[in-house]
């Protein structure tokens, strides 16, 4: 009767089992340091240009939009406040995670999927290596390290984008804008929220990519399917978890 729920429930169970093994392996030998560094370069440094571009333009457009609304109340001087608040709490973590998901969840899914369909994963097991230890854990550690850092960069570049608009299109003074940015942030609440979110999103980005990659079947067509599924599921989960985290932060005393 409930056969239709069997497959998603089994998939969820497999996902949590994989996540558990990947986390447990962080504390177990052997550690593949070279792979972690390589993945940090691919995920972190490789994503930098797109994160900087998206951060800059989202900050700039936020400043333009907010200034229109604020102008109605004669509060255009508070543009920096709204830009920083929106970026640090929401746009920075979410947009960065989506960019990294688009670039790396898909990349991970297609790389691991190709390895799966060409029996390289089986060969790895046959030759004495745990694929979760060798492939999943380094990607998880690298993403959990790099995504918060990328988010900080995106936040800052976004504020700079807002500054360019405020200075050259809205006629605000440099000091006026940056003071407003500074005042807009409640450091403990906002910065904590702005860093916890990307840390949690990093688990989604890396583990969803690895999960769909490792369960790929059906040759090259299957690799394409896994890549698409990884992108869709990672993006949806980022928004769902963002809502949950925001609610938790607000309920626990954040403004």
């Amino acid at each position: 009767m409930f056969d239709f729920v069997k497959e998603p429930v089994l998939a969820a169970q497999d996902f949590f089992l994989l996540s558990g093994r990947a986390l447990k392996n962080i504390f177990r030998r052997p550690h593949y340091g070279d792979d972690i560094i390589l993945q940090m370069d691919t995920i972190g440094v490789g994503s930098l240009p797109i994160v900087v571009l998206i951060g800059f333009f989202s900050g700039a457009v936020m400043a333009l939009q907010m200034s229109r609304a604020l102008a109605q109340y004669g509060q255009i001087g508070r543009t920096g406040q709204l830009v920083s608040l929106t970026l640090v709490r929401e746009l920075g973590p979410v947009l960065t995670a989506i960019m990294v998901a688009g670039r790396n969840s898909t990349g991970i899914a297609s790389e691991l999927g190709s390895m799966k369909v060409t029996e390289q994963i089986d060969a790895m097991r046959a030759l004495g290596t745990d694929p979760v230890q060798k492939l999943v854990t380094p990607r998880l550690i690298a993403t959990a390290t790099m995504l918060p850092l990328l988010t900080i960069i995106a936040d800052f570049v976004g504020m700079f984008g807002g500054f360019i608009v405020a200075r050259f299109f809205l006629g605000l003074l440099t000091r006026q804008y940056w003071m407003s940015v500074w005042r807009g942030l409640e450091w403990y609440v906002d910065v904590t929220q702005g860093l916890v979110k990307p840390f949690v999103f990093a688990f989604v980005v890396s583990l969803v990519g690895c999960f769909y990659g490792l369960r790929t079947t059906g040759g090259t067509q299957g690799v394409g399917r896994s890549t698409t599924q990884a992108m869709v599921v990672a993006t949806v989960l980022i928004f769902v978890i963002d809502l949950l985290l925001t609610k938790i932060f607000i309920s626990t005393g954040g403004s």
Binding site: M115, E119, Q120, A126
Partner: peptide, 23 residues
């Protein structure tokens, strides 16, 4: 379990159908 199997597998050589060399 997988870790116990590693010792046994070290005594088996396997050629996979598609060679399965690491790219």
């Amino acid at each position: 379990n997988e870790r116990q199997l590693f010792d046994i597998r070290s005594r088996i050589g396997m050629l996979f159908q598609e060679s399965a060399l690491f790219d």
